[in-house]
């Protein structure tokens, strides 16, 4: 279209503007409608996330629930609500549960851990020696176990707001549970065997498979980010979570630690990068430490 003259032009025919401007108005209207529907959708999702957080503040449904072995109905409900969540929403959930004095993991009925005092900074003993940490960091979970289960959910959440997701929602948020057998009939839990490629997949199966592949890539990236070596057991691998955590029991007088041996053989004992001392020789190459999850904490 040629630029319109700002001067009065008597030769412009009266029906020309309607002929050219109509498609434009139509397009503008379409764009405006699309914007309106996105905003509408955003409001709806934000309201749903708020309602979900209010519900999950009082979760789990039983005060004696076990976060390792959630009831299938609680687990299914929690997974369903997570579909809309972005990682920042998940941080808000943790924040609100903490303010209500609860462990940040929504399937845990226990109160959050209490720091030894109200001081802002605390000295805590870690394998790397004494570290200074924020009180809020200490008071997020009831245990490292809950931290791990909670963050396993977080890393699966999409950064993309639910109202912008074109490829539909990711409805496969996995949980770390130890009673998978109770769940897999009720839940879309992923079983290892199902990942094997099948010939002649339907389009839908194809989509599901590629979604899983994308998620696996994301988890692999995360593993790399955490300094895990490819091919090694992932710290977020649920297979290793079947191990039992061995309590440290003093049975003999302490002896000097043995010289380092190959740590890879111990990695199945790792809990968020830590290998409990009772089972592990001292080592120097502790690249990642047990606090790498605190990067995911709210503010």
């Amino acid at each position: 279209m040629t630029p319109k003259s700002i001067l009065k032009n008597s030769t412009v025919s009266t029906n020309e503007p309607s002929a050219t401007s109509k498609p434009y108005t139509q397009r503008h209207r379409d764009v405006a409608l699309q914007h309106a529907s996105i905003i509408e959708e955003q409001k709806r999702v934000e309201k749903e996330v708020l309602d979900a957080i209010m519900t999950l503040m009082d979760f789990p449904t039983s005060p004696t629930a076990d976060p390792m072995r959630p009831s299938p109905s609680d687990a299914l409900f929690f997974q369903g609500l997570m579909v809309n969540f972005q990682p920042s929403d998940y941080d808000s959930l943790i924040e609100e549960r903490n303010i209500a004095d609860r462990c940040g993991y929504a399937l845990c009925p226990r109160p959050k851990k209490k720091a030894p005092s109200k001081a802002r900074k605390h000295f805590i003993e870690t394998d790397k020696g004494v570290e200074i940490v924020d009180r809020r960091t200490l008071e997020v979970w009831c245990s490292d176990d809950c931290a791990r289960r909670a963050l396993y959910v977080k890393v699966q959440l999409s950064e993309e707001p639910a109202w912008m997701r074109r490829g539909g929602v990711n409805d496969k948020i996995e949980l770390l549970v130890e009673n998978a057998e109770d769940h897999h009939k009720a839940l879309p839990l992923r079983l290892k065997q199902e990942a094997a490629p099948k010939p002649a997949k339907s389009e839908e199966e194809e989509d599901v498979a590629s979604a899983w592949a994308a998620r696996d890539d994301a988890l692999a990236d995360l593993a790399l980010e955490r300094g895990e070596k490819p091919g090694r057991l992932s710290k977020a691998n649920k297979d290793l979570l079947r191990t039992h955590i061995q309590e440290r029991v003093q049975t003999a007088p302490s002896v000097p630690p043995e010289p380092p041996t190959q740590l890879s053989g111990q990695s199945h004992m790792a809990i968020e990068g830590h290998i409990p001392r009772a089972d592990r020789p001292k080592d120097e190459d502790e690249e990642d430490d047990g606090t790498d999850w605190d990067k995911h904490l709210p503010g």
Binding site: I53, M54, M57, E95, E96, I99, A100
Partner: peptide
């Protein structure tokens, strides 16, 4: 008088 005010206090 709470340090942090969230959904719990507001509700």
């Amino acid at each position: 008088s709470d340090d942090a005010v969230g959904l719990k206090q507001l509700r």
